[in-house]
Amino acid sequence: MTLVNLIKRNILVYSRNKANVFFSLLSMFIIIGLMAIFLGNMNADSVVDLLNQYGGARDAAADQDHAEQLVLLWTLAGIIVVNSVTITLTMVGFMVEDEDQQRLSSFYVAPVNRAIFVLGYILAAVIMGIVICLFTLGVGEFYVWLTGGALLAMEQLLQILLYIILNVFMSASMVFFIANFVHSTSAFSGLSTIIGTLVGFLSAIYLPMGMLPSDIQNVLKCLPLLHGCSLMRNVFTETALQTTFKDCPNQLIDGYKEYMGITIHWGDQIIGSQFQVAFLLISGIILIIMSALIQRKRNTVVR
């Protein structure tokens, strides 16, 4: 019962403060703005140029429409992953705020296992992250339908649901681990700004993978965030890729998928989805274990 009350309390603190909601979604708004102003057109035009160069005789109007839908779905996949980080980051920030306001000290002297309080923050972050990501998916699919695009099949939606849960779990574990080293709201606010800015680059949204130097690409390939984005993009763009690159050689499609970070290569090998799922899951578990060890040694006292 205590755990349920803690989860409810953290969710209410988030949802009742409009500033919390807005700033947790700020990275998404920035991505949408950049895509609407120039990045979306740039990515769509690059697809059309590829089709004109290698695709033979084409229907220019149809190619433009298909390219725009492909880029839209690619962007939507990235936005969901970004939200999984920024929403959980804001939710976990309540732990730092509680410590800074000395509320955490009062919690910890109560006759309740400290793990219950930790779970209260993590599970609230996971629940809220999943809810916002599913809402983003629904709004995105509605916009795709309005613009004449094809809706995702039920099997694809179920895959995306699984990947949303996996990404939110990994993100919540990651930001909770980071939050263990921050003890003031001002410091956490600065950290949130940095993470919110970097998340678009780390998931290769602002700049596609193919535009990044090889050393940067290798670094990103070691981070779970990029692999979570790759899993999402594979499902979101599966049908759109077939439609857009119809009658094109497979080498062209494979090259585009690698360039846009839809598939991730290590050397000459494509990293499979099973490995990516395992990587996200194991990363989340390891981060939680490390956080638990830190929490056991963490002393929170009334100042």
Rank of each mutant, 00 (worst) to 15 (best):
G138V: 01
V139Y: 01
G140L: 01
G140M: 02
G140T: 04
G140N: 09
E141D: 08
F142E: 00
F142I: 00
F142G: 00
F142H: 01
Y143W: 07
Y143N: 04
Y143P: 03
V144P: 01
W145A: 05
W145R: 02
L146C: 13
L146I: 13
L146E: 09
L146V: 13
T147F: 03
T147W: 14
T147M: 15
T147Y: 14
T147K: 14
G148K: 11
G148N: 09
G148E: 09
A150W: 03
L151A: 10
L151H: 05
L151E: 08
L151D: 07
L151R: 04
L152W: 06
L152V: 06
L152Y: 07
A153G: 07
A153C: 07
A153W: 05
A153N: 02
A153D: 09
A153H: 03
M154I: 12
M154S: 12
M154V: 14
M154C: 10
M154R: 15
M154G: 08
E155Q: 09
E155M: 07
E155F: 06
E155V: 08
E155N: 13
Q156D: 06
Q156H: 03
Q156W: 12
Q156T: 01
Q156S: 10
Q156V: 03
L157T: 03
L157N: 05
L157C: 09
L158K: 03
L158T: 01
L158S: 13
L158F: 15
L158M: 14
L158P: 02
Q159A: 15
Q159C: 15
Q159V: 10
I160T: 01
I160E: 03
I160D: 05
L161W: 04
L162C: 10
L162S: 13
L162T: 13
Y163Q: 11
Y163S: 14
Y163E: 03
I164V: 01
I164S: 03
I165W: 04
I165G: 00
I165Y: 03
L166S: 02
L166F: 04
N167E: 10
N167S: 15
N167M: 10
N167Q: 06
V168W: 11
V168M: 08
V168N: 10
V168Q: 09
V168I: 14
F169I: 08
F169T: 15
F169W: 08
M170R: 05
M170Y: 09
M170E: 11
S171T: 11
S171E: 06
S171R: 11
S171C: 15
S171M: 13
A172C: 04
A172P: 00
A172V: 05
S173R: 06
S173G: 04
M174L: 14
M174W: 11
M174A: 15
M174F: 15
